[in-house]
């Protein structure tokens, strides 16, 4: 992005990878068939996301996809999430969701999980308290899908 926008101080939040994923998400489609699905909504802003997961064996993810109407942060977060959960089982996804929540809230995570480095560009939300929920919304929907709920109530 050029200097002329003079939004340099928001580049920690809107890193190029975030803007790119929001504009051209790789995993945003209505996946069929699927084994688990849940919707999440942030009532404050109206962001909506539906996460679908297809398992290969047991709860190991073959593919994850989402449909969403939301801000750049929630879209990019959903897209990166769909990428990093592939090949993980339910326990590994729950653990990563907890690590990501920590990253989003604090800007750092003590986790040694290699997926955290993929998710690192979203750490900027920690400086924008009202935007943390945008980043964690898709993960809440994913956990709800694993729990078998139809809809996740975003905390």
């Amino acid at each position: 992005m050029s200097q002329s926008h003079s939004f340099d101080d928001v580049r920690d939040l809107y890193q190029n990878i975030i803007l790119d994923r929001a504009r051209n998400p790789r995993h945003m489609h209505r996946m069929e068939p699927f084994d688990a699905c849940a919707a999440g909504e942030n009532p404050l802003c109206g962001d909506q996301v539906e996460v679908r997961v297809r398992f290969a064996a047991g709860t190991t993810v073959a593919e994850a996809a989402f449909e969403a109407r939301g801000c750049a942060i929630s879209m990019a977060s959903a897209d990166l999430m769909a990428e990093v959960v592939r090949g993980r089982d339910a326990a590994a996804m729950r653990s990563l969701a907890a690590d990501f929540a920590e990253l989003a809230r604090n800007g750092v995570s003590g986790s040694a999980d290699p997926a955290i480095s993929t998710l690192q560009p979203l750490s900027g939300v920690s400086e924008y308290r009202s935007r943390v929920k945008c980043a964690t919304l898709p993960w809440s929907a994913l956990i709800a899908a694993l729990d078998g709920a139809k809809e996740s109530s975003h905390d």
């Binding site: 101080d9 928001v10 939040l13 809107y14 802003c45 109206g46 962001d47 939301g70 801000c71 750049a72």
Partner: peptide, 21 residues
């Protein structure tokens, strides 16, 4: 641009608007 992204960028320029529903 989503309304929340608009509001965040405006805020960083000192401009307070409401965004949402």
């Amino acid at each position: 641009a989503h309304a929340h992204d608009v509001a965040t960028l405006l805020d960083r320029n000192g401009i307070a608007v409401r965004a949402g529903r």
